[in-house]
Amino acid sequence: MVNDVHVAPPAPPRWYESLFIAVGAPFTAVGRELRGDVALAFAALGAIFRGAAGRRAVVQQAYAVGNRSLFFITATLGFLGLISVYQVATQIQQILPDFSMLGAAFIQLMIREFAPTITGLMIATRVGSGIAAEIGSMVVTEQVDALRMCNADPVEYLVAPRVLGSVVMVPMLSIYAVLVATLAGMALGHAVFDIPTQTFLSLRLVKGPDIVLGLVKAVSYGFWIPIVAAHAGLSATGGSAGVGWATTRAVVATSFAVVLLDFVISGASYVIFSV
């Protein structure tokens, strides 16, 4: 298809060179990915602060992220609540049968760690792959080019509304997730271990910093998931294989972004604020 390029074939790499290549390649790949994500994040923030995201589009995306994930979040976080209480209570039963702190600790841990992070992972899975599939399809069917020919900035048009919608909805879903998991855990504790619901539903460990920490996590997941996913979608090339590949990449990259953000935020808050 293309003219022959006449270059001397490169010498095969020596063993230590190929070792360096093998070790370094993932880092350069991650570096390139990160640079693209950060650039897109700045572009999206610019568009948002210019007020370029249409209100209707934002509401639509918020609906797609939030309302349409309700069932999924209910199912996954519900089961997580059940199994967590079951396993921890079984463990406690063997040592000292005192369940008085179980509910309080469970609720606190849900608020500061598991509800936002598992919700973030679920949104990364459902919405991240959805955004990548949508935008990737628009790229390979030239709709993104058509937007640019009509002088509509794809970042303003496609990325900004998704970011706004998700920044609002992921914290909402996280709050909902705390509720679902707590109710599920409480029901199981009552049915299997005879823990009175009043004992379980105790907020005595929950302090302001826990809530702030949970919300900070949820907001950062809500911001970065659509950015990373849209970046994967916009990099799609060539036909059905391209869209599938972009979607796959988005799932891994967004899930990993959630884990990484969780580590950074948890670590920083523990070391700096002892929270």
Partner: peptide, 19 residues
């Protein structure tokens, strides 16, 4: 560039209609 593009029309191979 936006000004110049206003003078262009582009018919895409795969229609590229916004779905």
């Amino acid at each position: 560039l936006a000004k110049v593009r206003e003078a262009y029309g582009y018919v895409f191979q795969n229609y590229a209609l916004f779905d």
